[in-house]
């Protein structure tokens, strides 16, 4: 039996964003939302570990009311229950504040063997939440994990590092930040989607977690986003169209001129 808590984020689908180059802005209007891609790998791994070893998976999501959509999807994927951490006080907090709020919720849940997160989220990809969360909980972490094997109180994990695969062993409890290579997330069946509606979702506010509002959100954050703009690519962006042979001729000339072919 293994008690797992998996953290995920409800984000705007970055592939659906409209780039307004004229005004140097991103247009978020009408953009679709989703569970951050890598977080789906985290959920999948949590559910697989439960299926193999028995136990429960609790989904944990910090977000606004519209994150309920992602919470429901996580339940359809196989989480047994979920906690949505939603409070205006949490808004515009930096990643370390997010980790702090998650850690308070995990302390309230109380019992766990494994916390699973992704390595990063598709919106800002800071990679901060997992390690910071392990730090707040004072448990060891294994990041960039591509394989998890559980035997009793011991976990063996493969980590994808720059120089190769590093295999580590760790006692429970620990935090695992998964790499996308770890699995292929499932698509829930219709029956699973329907039954997700019956699963327990509890919403927690700052006060439920013993969090002072001034210590989280924008005011409690040590790093703030001051502006977001569309980068002007410094690339030449010279496109050749037309017949393959003609375009190739011109590209070959350009490469010679640039001195990258000799």
């Amino acid at each position: 039996m293994v008690e797992i808590i998996v953290c995920f984020k409800h984000v705007v689908d970055e592939s659906e964003l409209k780039v307004d180059r004229a005004n140097n802005k991103i247009n978020f209007e009408g953009a679709k939302t989703k569970i951050s891609d890598d977080d789906k790998n985290a959920i999948e791994e949590a559910v697989r570990l439960k299926e193999k070893n028995g136990g429960t998976v609790i989904g944990l999501c910090l977000g606004k009311a519209d994150a309920r959509k992602s919470v429901k999807e996580a339940l359809a994927m196989g989480c047994d229950k979920a906690r949505l951490l939603s409070d205006p006080a949490f808004q515009d907090g930096d990643a370390i504040r997010t980790a702090y709020v998650l850690s308070q919720a995990i302390k309230r849940i109380g019992k766990y063997d494994i916390i699973i997160t992704a390595t990063g989220t598709t919106d800002v990809y800071s990679g901060i939440v997992g390690p910071a969360l392990a730090e707040f909980l004072e448990i060891p972490q294994a990041t960039f994990v591509s394989k998890v094997a559980l035997a009793g109180d011991k976990v063996t994990l493969d980590r994808l590092m720059e120089e190769g695969v590093e295999t580590v062993e760790c006692d429970l409890p620990l935090l695992i930040a998964v790499a996308r290579e770890i699995n292929q997330p499932r698509f829930p069946t219709l029956i699973q989607i329907m039954s997700a509606g019956k699963k327990e979702v509890v919403e927690w506010k700052a006060s439920d977690l013993g969090i002072e509002a001034s210590t989280v959100g924008k005011n409690g954050s040590l790093v703030q986003v001051t502006s977001t703009q569309v980068p002007k690519s410094a690339r030449k962006k010279i496109l050749f169209e037309g017949s393959a042979s003609e375009s190739s001729e011109r590209l070959a000339d350009a490469l010679l001129k640039e001195g990258v072919v000799n």
């Binding site: 780039v19 986003v225 502006s227 569309v230």
Partner: peptide, 12 residues
Amino acid sequence: VVWGGNATSTVS
């Protein structure tokens, strides 16, 4: 670099 490379955020 944020939003799938579509944007840059300035953080302080």
